[in-house]
Structures are given as structure tokens and as C-alpha cells.
Amino acid sequence: MIAMDKVVKRYKDVIALDHFSFQAGENEIIGLLGPNGCGKTTAINCMLSLLKFDQGTIEIFGEPANPNNNRTKRRIGIVPQELAIFEKLNVVENIDFYCGLYVTNKAERKQLVDEAIAFVGLEKYRKFVPKQLSGGLKRRLNIACGIAHKPEVLFLDEPTVAVDAQSRNFILEGVKKMKEQGTTVIYTTHYLEEAEDLCDSFVIMDNGRNVANGTLDELQKSISTTESVTVKFITEDDTLVTRLKQIPHVNQVSKTQDKYNIQFDKHHNNLANLIRFIEDNSLTYTEIASEQPSLSSIFLELTGKELRD
């Protein structure tokens, strides 16, 4: 659906995209992730032909990206992070305006607008203007404006930022439903737990580059840490952190209140080695839990920074 190959975008002396490559197949949700200023917005704007780039190639639906190709634009939707709605138009009028950019037939457009309203759950608010809507409902309206013309590829930029839990769940379920209906979604978010639950694969950006890409399983295999174990001890002393670090294949040990987090490298008997250490040292514990690296820990290892840095 989308193929970027070694794209370079410069702003004078600043390289916003540094030989960045990206691919999106049919009917998948791809998390485009990276810290602030990493080049995500620039990459999206290049895909949308809103920016010219200096090197590389971009193809949309197998054709070179072209700002004058209205046939291609009809197949793409964009929901920006900033609300793109008209304050003096009501819900129906806002959606109808954006849908009208692609669909000229009034009868067809009316049906599409009604379907978009139902999809985001705004049936009770058809005649409301934006100032009468809560923040979460405005986000839903923003999404309806971007999907009413039924795009095959949809860019969703931080669609759940600053919304209530109910609207967040409604939006996320809606994104899953769009995938079920055949839409390819490029999804950006600072909520890594949300991305981990929602996305089929990920592209992690930093400094304009593609740092890593793949499914969660593939990303987990690409980093040194393969397992994280949390233990709550009853018996402990000041030397316990140092002694835990001596267990084979331990990368890092940290303590938060009364719990110890132990990160292991690539090995298959990590938990057994920890249990043996506990028994040999006559330690008593009340909790022990093992988990594979989360998307957050993968991101931190690959980029060296938190997502909101």
C-alpha cells in the first residue's frame, strides 16, 4: 500500500529524514513510534505529498507519490493530532464538508456521513456544534471527518491524546473494526501500552532513521534483554542488589520500594537460576513474576530514551 525507500528530507542544515524506509501492507495496523522530533510528522507529510523530499522514492498504491493525483487522495484518510473541525458547523455539517472533498454525489455522501456518525457513536449529537461537545466527543468527530469517505489507508496521529477512558476505548475498538473492514492504518501514539495492544507491527524511528521494525515478537528477539523478573522478598539486606547481579546472564537489577526487577539476557534457564539463587541464600519471597520485554522496554533499549523525551 505504501513503500518509502531511503527517503531524505533536509531543512537547511537539519536532516529530518535520514534515508528513512517504511512499508505498509494491506489490512494491517502499523505503529509508527518515536520520541518527539524524531521525524514522524515529516515522514507522514512526505507520504501524503504535502512535503517535497530530497532523495529516495515513495510509492502509494504502486504509483509514485504525486500531490496532483486526486484518484490516490480519494483512497487516503488523515486524522491529525490537532482538531481539524469547524467551530461554526455542527457534527453533520463538519463530516459532510470533509466527505464532500472526495464524494460529489449528495445521496451517496449522505449515506457515508450517516455511517461515519454511527461508527464513532455520535448519533445523539448530530446537530451539536463543537463547543457543545466534550473533548472525547470532539476526538470522535475528528475521526469521523477523516474516515467518512472510506479510505483504504488511514493515518491516525495521536487520536486518543487527552481523552476520557470511555472515548479512548471507543476509539481503539473503532480502529480494530476498521482493520477488520480492510483498512490499513498507520498509527502514531505516545501510549506504548496502547500501541502494543492495537498494532500488528511497529516502525521505531529516532533522529530521522528507521531504528527497528517488525512484530512485537521480532522486536523482542532483536534486543539483548529477553526476560524481566520481578520479586518481592521478605528477607533482604543492603547487599542483595549486588548479589543478584552475580546470577548468570543478569543484565541489570533495580529496586522500587520493596520489589526487585531483574533483567536477563538471551538464555532459557533464567527463572530456574534465580530460584536456585533464592534457595541457596535462604531468602523468602511473597511474589515472583516473569514477563517478556514490553514495547516500552524495547523502545528504551533501542533509542536510549523514553518515548516522551
Rank of each mutant, 00 (worst) to 15 (best):
G208N: 13
L219C: 09
T235K: 15
T184I: 02
E196Q: 14
E193P: 10
T230V: 12
I223H: 08
R209W: 09
N213H: 15
H190E: 04
H190L: 10
E227M: 09
D238V: 10
V231C: 06
E194W: 12
I204E: 01
S222Q: 12
E236S: 15
D217S: 11
S224Q: 14
R209E: 14
S224T: 15
I186E: 02
R209P: 05
N210H: 14
E218Q: 15
T189K: 00
T215S: 11
T226P: 06
D206F: 02
T188A: 02
D238Y: 11
A212D: 03
Y191Q: 12
A195M: 01
G214S: 10
F233L: 08
Y187W: 07
N207Q: 15
I204F: 06
F233R: 03
T235M: 06
D238Q: 13
R209N: 12
D197I: 01
S224W: 09
F233G: 05
T239C: 11
V211R: 13
D237H: 06
V203I: 13
L219A: 09
V203A: 10
V185K: 01
M205D: 00
C199F: 00
T188L: 05
F202V: 06
I234S: 13
Q220T: 00
N213A: 14
V231I: 12
T235Y: 11
V185D: 06
I234R: 06
D200L: 08
